[in-house]
Design a protein around this nucleic acid. Sequence first.
RNA 1: AUAGGCGGUCGGAUAGCUGCGUCGGGCAACCGGCGAGGAAAGUCCGGGCUUCAUGGAAACAAAAUACCAGAUAACGUCUGGCUGGGGCGACCCAAGGGAAAGUGCCACAGAAAAUUACCGCCGCGGCUUGUUCGCGGUAAGGUUGAAAAGGCGAGGUAAGAGCUCACCGCAAAGCCGGCAACGGUUUUGGCCAGGUAAACCCUAUUUGAAGCAAGACCAAGUUAGGAGGGCUUUUAUUAAAAAGUUGUGCGGGGUGUUUCCAACCCACUCCAGAGGUAGGUCGCGACGAGCAAGAUGGUGACAUCUUGCCCAGAUGAAUAGCUAUCGUUUUGUUGUGCUGCAAAGUAGAACAAAAUACAGAACCCGGCUUAUAGGCCGCCUGAAUAU
Length: 122
Amino acid sequence: MVEVFILKKRKDFVRVASKGLKVVTSGLILQAALSLSVQDDCCHIGYTATKKLGKAHIRNRTKRRLRAAVREVFPQTALSGVDYVLIGRYNTATCDFQKLKDNMHKALEQINALLNEKKVTK
RNA sequence: AUAGGCGGUCGGAUAGCUGCGUCGGGCAACCGGCGAGGAAAGUCCGGGCUUCAUGGAAACAAAAUACCAGAUAACGUCUGGCUGGGGCGACCCAAGGGAAAGUGCCACAGAAAAUUACCGCCGCGGCUUGUUCGCGGUAAGGUUGAAAAGGCGAGGUAAGAGCUCACCGCAAAGCCGGCAACGGUUUUGGCCAGGUAAACCCUAUUUGAAGCAAGACCAAGUUAGGAGGGCUUUUAUUAAAAAGUUGUGCGGGGUGUUUCCAACCCACUCCAGAGGUAGGUCGCGACGAGCAAGAUGGUGACAUCUUGCCCAGAUGAAUAGCUAUCGUUUUGUUGUGCUGCAAAGUAGAACAAAAUACAGAACCCGGCUUAUAGGCCGCCUGAAUAU
């Protein structure tokens, strides 16, 4: 089990976007990078919904759905000491919720495998 | 009932599982309260609040507003009225200072855009006696145009003309009604004369600016005594170098601009100290131009009084995610009742499908504007249709 904290600083978002890994699926985009300050059994996660998606209430709904999905998916599968960023897509607010969770699970496993590879090569 | 006008209101519900923010209680586990909108939107006006170092005077500039009276903390908002326009009507209107202060623009057309005569009409005259020429009168008719110097009828005349008269319109003056905008009426004047002010402009009134990323407070880290700059003097062709000094005066800057007066502030820049970045706390939500109900006054906007209530406070930003059932609307299919010969109309039922809006507080209030599936309620209208 991994405890999930919210990522708040703009600096961290920029770091993850520029230096981290990226996986694209239907409904969401997942980015990840190793945290600077490593703590046991916790990861940080941030949500992004750009203005491209729509007006404020649509962006809010996108983030809420991502948050609800994260609550069910992340504690089992996420790695500790990693910063994740979830980016909403045009269909995040309207797509089937079960599908959203499945896609998130797949994306998370994929990106975790890549991260582990990176650690090993180091 | 259909149709239409005006105003108001709601804008999904219930259950389960999983969660979030905040406040209160508790050592803790946890428990309890509260948790988006009518527009939270656009950021277009008006205020509160905050800062810009102040107070006062004058001029200029810029912007906004523009019938009258009232409401309000204030407004460009609202209410009631006036005039004009639209509608059969209920009602509606992004309509409302000044065009005889001045400037500009109005293509083209037309004889002519102002003391206008092309055609026409009338009179007089000439001789080549006629589809003739000249002189004069004439704005009734024709043409153009946005506009041809009141309209229309009668009298009048050679033909005509406000030349005269009636009615209508216009202007001025008086009287009456109204707080006023304005309305009514009488007399007088033959009638000064297009539009555009969302062209400049003129008149009146109002306005200092920027905004909670305002602003107040706490304060890691970094920076280590210096670096760069100005001024003066000396040397030097210049470039530059050295030394001194860095603060009093002069002078300079300080809310749109300029000017004036008073008092004041700033001071060479960065860094240590001072200060203040990251970050944090406050501002910030429960005392308010507050909300609800009632009473009184007022046509009304609204005001006053009484009683009760406390009602979101996030900051990568809570107020939800999912599932089920139901509701609402539309469409299709099926079958039923009623009217009807039939076509068809109408009422309710079952099943299926689709749709279920606009949109998310960010310092707070009062407005305006714009967006909005669908539903409900009240008052009112009558060219018309049906019973």
